[in-house]
Design a protein around this nucleic acid. Structure first.
Lengths: 252, 252
DNA sequence: TCATTTTTTGACATGTTGTCTAGAATTGAG
DNA sequence: CTCAATTCTAGACAACATGTCAAAAAATGA
């Protein structure tokens, strides 16, 4: 990860070139994943498309898996920034939960490769090829994402908007919400033809189901169809709106 | 799919041998997936472990993807039978929903390879290599699974145990429940170390979250901690209990 | 200018995929 | 029981991917 803007000034011309090339490889990989899936990412391919040789690619990444996890991590840190934006909205904590859901959906629409990589690498034999450093960064990012949701729930407990029942802890609720969101996004990405079943707006549907869940836990303020709809609209139109069709947090 | 018991009698000795060998390859593949992941499944490997030659393996499967989807389909039809067993319990429809969740969890514990395959094959370039027939069977199985849940919700609507609110349809609720379950199982299977966060019994947690969701929709009878716990216990001890450590619906 | 260091290259060994042909085994007619 | 026809099996092959390495090329600096 040598490609951050603030580092650029302190690096020599040569080092900047290397960092730039590193980013080029990542960009090519991301495109490949979006267009043809993870299986299409090969060192050969990367070399060919970048017009460098295989050896040069191996200078940057010890193996294909390392490419994938770096692309994934860079997207996830962008997702984290979206989550933090969601947490910061000046509304009830319930609405903040909603905002996180919208953020996640916004992200998955624009960065479909991230889930693809996560699924591809969930296979046993793949994740244990990547470097310790990137793996740790990956875990840290995942934990940070959960912590954002967790902190919103914690805040709601503090303000008494929510009181946990005896047989469910705050972190368990977070796990439930996370599962719901994660599951729906994978189902959306899968070749399930949800519309054939009558699911035309999965995002709205999940938001509604989350609302039912929070109602079931008596998280105040309870669901109000009109306000819910208005909030969703506001989030989509104002908070999570393409800045400039940016497709990654990392820019050079 | 020539390996069903009832067909055996009508086949010649040679045909039986072939069917048996077909099953042998599938069994080896399943073991490989469980132990080392989908990436470890190779035609070479299959040939070596079965002590047949590569050519023979290709006689049975045109490609590796075909092996994977056949293993997956065979497991999914077992899952369908579990779902149907869940639907048949002599209790409220709410409890039947719970039973489906327990069934799904029971299944994923015993057949972890099924989710692994689904994740592995979600990559664009993989699913479009499999034969039309197997792909259709796969879609049909997926649809059947959803229909079981859907029919339980339909039954609850008929008996007025549940009334859908204006802004949520029955099928959307099914999608929500499906997402929740699917998501939680993938998160359990991932290398997330849920216990570090304080999630020691993900299955119980998700059942509790589902209960909250159904409460939020006012699906009667509402959640009662004691009865819920008893029902979970009964399902796990009585309904979904290893018959004989069977590890697949297909037996020879 | 040229020696030193670094970067880049492509050939190589190894392993996988899917095809294809020659040889082995099985079958059934005489 | 024999032998030709048919079917099945084995493994060689070309194509491609991976990761390594030594030689060639380029950059650096006295």
């Amino acid at each position: 990860m040598l490609s951050r803007i603030e580092d650029m000034a302190t690096l020599s011309r040569k080092q900047r070139e290397i960092a730039q090339r590193h980013q080029l490889f990542l960009d090519i990989a991301r495109n490949l994943i979006n267009k043809e899936g993870c299986a299409a990412v090969s060192m050969d391919h990367l070399a060919e498309l970048s017009e460098y040789s295989r050896g040069t690619v191996y200078q940057h990444f010890p193996c294909k898996e390392e490419v994938l996890i770096e692309v994934c991590n860079s997207s996830m840190s962008y997702l984290l920034s979206l989550f933090e934006r969601a947490r910061a909205i000046p509304h009830s904590n319930r609405d903040r939960i909603l905002a996180v859901m919208v953020a996640h959906n916004y992200f998955d629409l624009r960065q479909p490769h991230c889930n693809k990589i996560l699924q591809y690498t969930s296979d046993n034999s793949i994740m244990d090829k990547v470097s310790e450093a990137n793996l740790q960064q990956h875990n840290k990012l995942e934990k940070s994402l959960l912590l954002v949701v967790s902190s919103i729930v914690g805040e709601a407990l503090k303000t008494k908007e929510l009181t946990m029942p005896k047989d469910l802890t705050a972190i368990e609720l977070v796990f439930g919400l996370w599962s719901l969101n994660h599951g729906s996004q994978l189902l959306q990405a899968a070749e399930l033809h949800l519309d054939e079943f009558g699911i035309t707006q999965p995002e709205e549907t999940i938001a509604r189901v989350v609302a039912a869940t929070l109602d079931g836990l008596n998280w105040k303020p309870l669901y109000d169809a009109k306000k819910h709809k208005a909030m969703m609209q506001w989030l989509k139109d104002t908070v999570f709106v393409d800045p400039q069709m940016a497709d990654d947090a990392e820019e050079i």
